[in-house]
């Protein structure tokens, strides 16, 4: 079996997590678990969902692949292209913009030598802008991995980038 195929297999721990998720919904409504299972797949398969990953999820869920594709392409949190180890997402919506997100964007672009939507050659960072993250009273905000970083200044965001593992 190739390395690629090996990587496209849920670990036992992930299968157990998926089984816990299925229990939240009526037995005949297993498809309800599609969004959470896609989240699990993205986490397990390197931060993004390839065609193979989507096909694997379809088989795992017992759903037609097309149903999985239409859901994966609808929601912005599913990455359909590879992303860096650290996916840095800057909110530029109104409250963040009023509180200086332009300077945060500039700082990140300069520091990471990336434009919005780009991934660094070493695969360490992807920089994106995102719409409102729902933490507006602590603007400006950057979302990296699972965490929000709030009340940022250019200096603070620069420091946060330096401290990422």
């Amino acid at each position: 079996m190739s390395a690629l195929q090996n990587s496209l297999q849920f670990s036992e721990a992930t299968v157990r997590q998926a089984e816990m998720i299925f229990k939240r919904y009526p037995a005949e409504r297993r498809e309800s678990a599609l969004l959470p299972v896609l989240h699990l797949a993205q986490r397990e398969f390197g931060g993004w969902l390839s065609q193979e990953a989507l096909d694997y999820v379809a088989a795992f869920m017992g759903m037609p692949p097309l149903r999985v594709y239409e859901v994966a392409t609808f929601y912005t949190m599913y990455n359909l292209k590879p992303v860096g180890k650290h996916h840095v997402r800057v909110c530029t919506n109104i409250s963040c913009w009023l509180c200086g997100s332009d300077a945060i964007v500039q700082t990140l672009q300069d520091k990471l030598h990336l434009k919005m939507g780009e991934t660094s050659a070493d695969g360490r960072f992807t920089l994106d802008h995102v719409e409102c993250l729902g933490a507006c009273v602590n603007a400006p905000i950057v979302h990296i991995g699972d965490d929000y970083y709030e009340n940022l200044t250019p200096d603070k965001v620069s420091e946060i980038i330096d401290q990422l593992p």
Binding site: L35, Y75, M77
Partner: peptide, 10 residues
């Protein structure tokens, strides 16, 4: 009661 996480769609 269960939590269900969305995936980024306003």
């Amino acid at each position: 009661l269960a939590v269900h996480r969305g995936a980024g769609a306003y």
